[in-house]
């Protein structure tokens, strides 16, 4: 790492440790980590593992806020360890705990099994009535750039689980579908190619669905990708109200684009080079 003026400074890391084979309950362990320019919380944990304590466990992968593996409870807020620099949080002391509302497998590793089950429960994939077209596609389903904007925000979800950690309803109600899964329900319901809104209703509007949300907004506040699950849930509520009042109809997915042979070639556009393989 690049050395600089602050190379002699250290930051105190207080990390929750829990080994299910040895510990009866979690304990907080302290480490001193050299504070260097640009160091993230994840860098600090890596430094501890390499230099002080090889038994420290956590999940991480991409180091750039894309994979969603390193969600942790850092200095009182759920955050990604990889895209939060220590100097931006607290250069004196960093407290790292596993994400709350998820069981602890070991140290900073949360159990995301139930989280993914909830995600699957809202059928997070395109549903079409004509099965033949899906099994034997004849072309691409049409979608305009404007239609893309209707859902692209919710498609940025990296399934890190921070929103469920922040949600006060999840804290007490284990059955609540939760902001992540509900935002994904809206992501697919809002997709112009989708026809599955009715199939998702059982999960989305059940007693454990959208009506358990009371717009605390913490999920949207902590989302590292700007997905805004709180808005997604309110839009799902609005959608069902309009549909029940017959002010909005269920969507018919957009059709397949015409085949390439049916297009007229534009002489101004140069032809693609011949394939090399």
């Amino acid at each position: 790492m690049e050395s600089n003026e602050s190379a002699d400074k250290t930051v105190l890391f207080e990390v929750l440790r829990y080994n299910p084979d040895k510990d009866k309950s979690p304990v907080m362990q302290q480490y001193k980590v050299p504070l260097q320019k640009g160091i993230t919380v994840l860098d600090g944990l890596v430094w501890i593992k390499e230099n002080l304590d090889a038994s420290l466990s956590w999940r991480s992968s991409c180091r750039m806020g894309v994979c969603g593996s390193c969600g942790m409870f850092i200095n009182g807020l759920p955050r990604l360890a990889c895209n939060n620099q220590i100097v931006h949080i607290n250069p004196e002391k960093i407290t790292v705990k596993p994400l709350p509302n998820f069981d602890i497998i070991r140290d900073l590793v949360p159990d995301l099994e139930g989280f993914f089950q909830k995600h699957r429960s809202v059928k997070p994939y395109l549903i079409r009535k004509e099965i033949d077209e899906l099994d034997h596609p004849t072309g691409e389903f049409f979608q305009s750039p404007e239609e893309l904007v209707n859902y692209i925000q919710f498609a940025y979800c990296i399934k890190c689980g921070l929103c469920l950690s922040a949600c006060p309803t999840v804290a007490t109600d284990e059955r609540y579908t939760g902001p992540q899964a509900l935002a994904q329900a809206l992501r697919y319901n809002s997709d112009s190619r989708d026809e599955g809104a009715k199939e998702r209703e059982a999960a989305v509007y059940s007693g454990s669905g959208v009506w358990r949300c009371h717009f605390a907004g913490a999920c949207s506040q902590v989302c590292p990708k700007g997905v805004d699950p709180a808005m997604a849930i309110q839009l799902l509520k609005k959608d069902i109200v309009l549909k029940k009042l017959r002010l909005r109809k269920y969507q018919h997915g957009t059709g397949v684009l015409p085949k390439t042979e049916e297009w007229k070639e534009n002489p101004k556009i140069p032809k693609a080079p011949a394939p090399t393989v």
Binding site: Y18, P20, D21, S25, P26, G76, L77, P98, L99, P100, N101, F102, D103, I104, I105, P110, D111, E113, G114, A166, P168, T169, V170, A171, T172, E174, F215, A216, G217, A218, Q221, V222
Partner: peptide
């Protein structure tokens, strides 16, 4: 609830319900 029998429960429960923590006004 975890399938992993050794996993430790970490639900915030009433504290998570009542405590606004470092979240926004709307959480309070």
């Amino acid at each position: 609830m975890s399938k992993n029998s050794k996993a430790r429960r970490n639900k915030l429960g009433l504290i998570g319900w009542l405590g606004g923590g470092r979240y926004g006004f709307e959480r309070y």
